[in-house]
């Protein structure tokens, strides 16, 4: 099934009004990052700064986000909005074999290989081969993510984030491999993992 933007065509309308795609992108960026600056949201949601600020202001008014001095976290209402969007908008995809098969393959092959490669790199005091292996897996991830971008167009944004992090890591900025406080390859990977779990409605294991 082809889904335009984030939204799948739905057979029955949801009970409560859902947030729009841009608002979801903003709130979801905070949801996945736990605490995010507007700058981070601008980068990952690919929205203009005034737009992000406008949405944050509105959501603050609706008690969905809390401003902790320049960084935003979700309030309970915000988390509920994000989860409702996942549940309602992606319901048709959850019934679709293609996305589930994609996820199962990702989980059992790419995901495990990548985490192992990052771990090998960390425990080998920066071995070049472990690093190359890891980067190759990110390149594969970018390719395979784009297969999914026809169903979930916003997944293209993860591909771009991976490319940016990889370019920084290539230049010798090791923080962009797995440091959790910058948009590192490992960080993006884990945020994507949370995203796809929420999308297909699976509880997180480990």
């Amino acid at each position: 099934m082809m889904v335009s933007g984030n939204r799948a065509s739905m057979e029955s309308p949801p009970v409560a009004p859902l947030i729009d795609d841009d608002t979801f992108d903003v709130l979801n960026a905070i949801y996945l990052h736990k605490m995010a600056t507007p700058q981070h949201v601008v980068e990952v949601a690919e929205l203009a700064e005034p737009e992000v600020e406008g949405i944050l202001k509105r959501q603050q008014g609706e008690e969905a986000v809390i401003d902790l001095g320049g960084s935003f976290v979700l309030d309970e209402k915000g988390t509920a909005k994000v989860l409702a969007f996942y549940r309602e908008v992606y319901a048709p995809l959850r019934a679709q074999a293609g996305v589930i098969a994609w996820y199962d393959k990702f989980e059992t092959s790419l995901n495990q290989q990548f985490i192992k490669a990052v771990s090998d790199w960390q425990t080998s005091a920066g071995d070049d081969r472990a690093r190359e292996k890891m980067t190759k897996l990110v390149e594969r991830m970018i390719r395979t993510l784009r297969q999914l971008a026809t169903d979930v167009s916003r997944y293209e944004k993860y591909a771009k984030r991976f490319e940016r992090a990889m370019a920084r890591a290539d230049r010798g900025d090791d923080d962009f491999v797995c440091k959790p406080t910058v948009d590192s390859m490992h960080n993006i990977w884990f945020e994507f993992h949370e995203d796809i779990l929420a999308l297909i409605g699976r509880p997180r294991d480990v």
């Binding site: 949801y31 996945l32 990052h33 736990k34 605490m35 495990q112 985490i115 192992k116 990052v118 771990s119 960390q122 797995c178 959790p180 406080t181 490992h186 960080n187 884990f190 945020e191 949370e194 997180r204 294991d205 480990v206």
Partner: peptide, 28 residues
């Protein structure tokens, strides 16, 4: 998971019941 990142950065150490050497907690 990434949702725990604030606490992980702040804490002096981390203990989890599940997951192996490749888990989120281990890598982060």
């Amino acid at each position: 998971s990434p949702l725990d990142i604030r606490g992980m950065i702040a804490a002096g150490g981390i203990l989890t019941a599940r997951g192996g050497a490749l888990s989120h907690a281990a890598v982060v």
